[in-house]
């Protein structure tokens, strides 16, 4: 790992300011994505700006018909939150199965979204629930936020502050975890809510994506067997030693049916 300077700003404005002044700087959440990448030599930022503990990024609350989760909240905090469990139990359950206990105690919602690992769990929830990503300067709809492999709509000096999740009528997440990393080999989040019926798939492709055929089928009838006739194409899906594209396509069907069944 290359040497870097570490910054711990007192507030959000100072953090943004540091990022603006140092073009090679990176914002650091819980360090569960960026630090491993740096250890592998795939990233070598000149500066790390720690944002996880900033007051502006903390907190969980229900605001009207939305659940607002601070970007600095750890996966464990989200999983254990009474508000989250009440408003969107599927989101609490998803957070409770990210990685392992150590990862959940350090990793944050904002860090996960900004990194946008193609096998991360949170992007599936943000996309399926039609959430809004709030940053230090604007609001970005989930459909506009994810741009493929490790790419998001965020600017280099932009910090995610919170995510606003519309509270759905029904939602559930089902994942087939990689045996070592516990990342999703395939994860499917299904939701029926204010934004309609949405199905988001993570782990299977170069980035999180919506499955339109399944959304149509479930829009017609919300039941696991409504997905029986939906063929999932292997084309464009990831293939690696842990699963071929065909196997991932198969798993998308299985996980989607399980998610719908779990959502009730």
């Amino acid at each position: 790992m290359q040497d870097f300077s570490f910054h711990k700003p007192q507030n959000l404005a100072a953090a943004v300011d540091t990022l603006k002044k140092r073009p090679e700087a990176k914002a650091l959440g819980g360090g569960q994505s960026l630090i491993p990448v740096m250890k592998l030599g795939l990233a070598a930022p000149s500066d790390l700006v720690s944002v996880a503990g900033l007051a502006e990024l903390r907190g969980i609350k229900v605001d009207g018909k939305e659940l607002v989760v601070g970007a600095g909240m750890t996966h464990a905090e989200v999983a254990d939150s009474a508000e989250v469990k009440k408003a969107i139990p599927a989101l609490a359950a998803l957070a409770g199965h990210i990685g392992d206990a150590q990862v959940r105690n350090r990793g944050t919602l904002g860090g996960s979204l900004a990194h946008d690992d193609p096998a991360a769990d949170y992007p599936a929830a943000v996309l399926a629930l039609g959430a809004t990503v709030v940053t230090d300067r604007r609001k970005i709809a989930a459909d506009d936020f994810f741009r493929g492999l490790y790419q998001t709509a965020l600017g280099a000096d932009e910090i995610v502050t919170s995510v606003r999740f519309p509270i759905p009528e029904k939602a559930a997440y089902a994942k087939f975890a990689h045996p070592a990393s516990k990342f999703a080999l395939v994860g499917v989040m299904v939701a029926k809510g204010p934004a309609g019926v949405r199905v988001a798939v993570t782990g299977a492709g170069p980035g999180v994506f919506r499955q339109a055929d399944m959304e149509r089928a479930l829009g017609g009838r919300w039941a696991a067997d409504a997905l029986a006739g939906v063929a999932v194409k292997a084309e464009g899906l990831n293939a690696d030693p842990y699963g071929s594209a065909e196997y991932r396509a198969h798993l998308i069907g299985v996980m989607a049916r399980r998610a719908v069944a779990a959502a009730g």
């Binding site: 491993p36 592998l40 392992d100 990689h178 045996p179 070592a180 990393s181 690696d240 030693p241």
Partner: peptide, 13 residues
């Protein structure tokens, strides 16, 4: 090698 690391090489936990 497909993944010469403990992240990529799967071993039971």
């Amino acid at each position: 090698h497909v993944g010469p690391s403990m992240l990529d090489y799967k071993s039971p936990l």
